[in-house]
Computed example of a mutant assay.
Amino acid sequence: MAPLQHLTGDKLAIKEFVDKFDAFLFDCDGVLWSGDTPFQGAVETLDMLRNKGKSIVFVTNNSTKSRVDYRKKLDGLGIKAQIEEIFSSSYSASVYISRILELPPNKRKVFILGESGIEQELAAESVSYIGGTDPAYRREITPEDYAKIASGDPSMMDPEVGVVLVGLDFHINYLKLAVALHYIQRGAVFLATNIDSTLPNSGSLFPGGGSICAPLIAMLGGPGVPGAEPLSLGKPSQAMMDAIEGKFKFDRKKTCMVGDRINTDIKFGIDGGLGGTLAVLTGVTSREQLVASAIAPTAYVDELKDLLEGA
Rank of each mutant, 00 (worst) to 15 (best):
M241W: 04
V258A: 00
G227D: 03
I262F: 10
E229T: 09
P230V: 12
G222R: 01
D242F: 08
E229G: 11
M241H: 05
K254F: 12
G269A: 12
G246P: 02
L220H: 06
G224H: 09
F250C: 00
G272L: 01
A239F: 15
G246I: 04
T255C: 04
G224R: 05
G222I: 03
T264M: 05
G221V: 01
I270Q: 14
L216T: 06
L274G: 00
E229F: 13
M240H: 06
F248V: 03
S232Q: 06
L216D: 00
G227Q: 01
P226Y: 06
G246E: 10
A243K: 11
L216W: 01
M219E: 14
I266L: 09
M219W: 13
A214D: 00
P236I: 01
T264A: 06
R261V: 07
M219L: 15
K249V: 11
G272V: 08
L233E: 11
F250M: 03
G227I: 03
G259M: 07
K249F: 11
K247V: 01
M240N: 04
G234H: 07
P215I: 04
L216G: 02
F250S: 09
M241F: 07
V225Y: 13
N263D: 15
I217L: 02
G224K: 04
G273A: 15
A214H: 03
L274M: 06
I270S: 01
T255H: 09
K235M: 08
D251S: 12
G227R: 00
D265W: 03
D260P: 10
G246Y: 13
I217K: 02
P226H: 06
P230L: 09
D242I: 04
D265P: 13
G272M: 02
K247P: 02
R261C: 15
A228L: 00
G246L: 04
L233W: 10
D260S: 03
G273C: 08
L274R: 02
R252H: 02
D260Y: 13
P215M: 08
R252Y: 05
G227C: 13
A214S: 11
L220F: 11
A239D: 15
G227Y: 01
M240F: 04
T255P: 07
I262A: 12
G221C: 02
T264Q: 01
A218Y: 00
K253V: 05
S237I: 12
E229S: 12
I266F: 04
D251P: 02
K249T: 05
G273M: 05
P230C: 08
